[in-house]
């Protein structure tokens, strides 16, 4: 389907917890400037795949390659913070992990830590007022301001992150991930707990991130309407195995997928679409 090497290439990813086989030889790819969704019933191993990609778990076997700018990163061998900083893969969490006592703006400035750290001469220069730290910080604030504006949180910039409403916290987490300047954004159930209007805004935001900023998105989501509407490609997992992979139209018609969803009686699953 695509001749050029994909942005993310997952091959034969297997994860065992003790005796439990959580993910079993899953292979899939995510293309540049595309939204790839991973769906499946609860417990299918979606978040576990994410945790491997972002370095929180070590895969038992398999290869995870992220290629961009002429470089290739073997994610399975990198510590998590370097995956974020060097391989430029950013993520959000299923149960939102902000820095709750810090302000919204501080959350976004922190996402630009690596750049700012370098600009501050690893603290030493900035401590005595040398180097271009002030300029770098202003640039960081500008980037933060851009994303705050984009997710509609500009008015809350100086509020504690914990004081935001739930939907706002979700969007702030996406803004924070975008401030790390990623090439691949991994979102773990970004629409969970959002109302219809908020989901609509999220859909527009994700489209914009892909089209205007050229950032690929890997998405775990249960909201099938959202997934079908915005995904370029869908990977379906069940019990740690891949059961389908392809464009939305093909996946929607796949009998194995329908069986998987109807079998679980998942109310927001395929049957509802």
């Amino acid at each position: 389907m695509n001749a050029s090497p994909p942005l993310l290439d997952v091959s034969n990813l297997t994860i065992r917890f003790g005796g439990l086989l959580a993910v079993d030889a899953v292979s899939f790819r995510a293309d540049d400037r595309a939204i790839t969704a991973i769906i499946g019933p609860n417990g299918a191993g979606k978040t576990t795949v994410f945790n491997c990609l972002t370095g929180f778990y070590r895969p038992s076997s398999g290869a995870l390659a992220l290629r961009h700018g002429g470089q290739s990163f073997a994610l399975e061998a990198m510590p998590d913070h370097r995956i974020a900083a060097e391989a430029r893969l950013a993520r959000t969490f299923q149960n939102i992990r902000l820095f709750p006592q810090m302000t919204v703006l501080e959350n976004l400035i922190l996402a630009q830590h690596r750049t700012l750290m370098r600009a501050s001469g690893y603290t030493i220069l900035a401590l005595v007022g040398l180097g271009g730290y002030a300029r770098a910080e202003r640039a960081a604030v500008e980037r933060a301001r851009f994303w705050l504006d984009r997710v509609g949180l500009l008015a809350h910039a100086d509020d504690e992150a914990a004081s935001l409403a739930y939907g706002d916290q979700r969007r702030l987490e996406i803004a924070r991930a975008m401030c790390t300047d990623p090439v691949l954004l991994c979102l773990d159930e970004p629409a969970a707990g959002l109302n219809a209007r908020e989901t609509g805004a999220l859909s527009a935001l994700l489209g914009e991130i892909r089209d205007d900023h050229g950032v690929a998105i890997l998405l775990i989501e249960h909201d099938m309407a959202l997934v079908m509407a915005i995904s370029d490609r869908i990977v379906v997992l069940e019990y740690g195995r891949k059961i389908a992979d392809g464009p939305p139209s093909a996946v929607r018609a796949d009998p194995a997928v329908i069986a998987a969803y109807l079998g679980t009686g998942d109310s927001d699953g395929m049957a509802a679409v």
Partner: peptide, 9 residues
């Protein structure tokens, strides 16, 4: 964990 996810060592 959030720190690690945004690239802080």
């Amino acid at each position: 964990i959030a720190c690690r996810a945004i690239g802080i060592n």
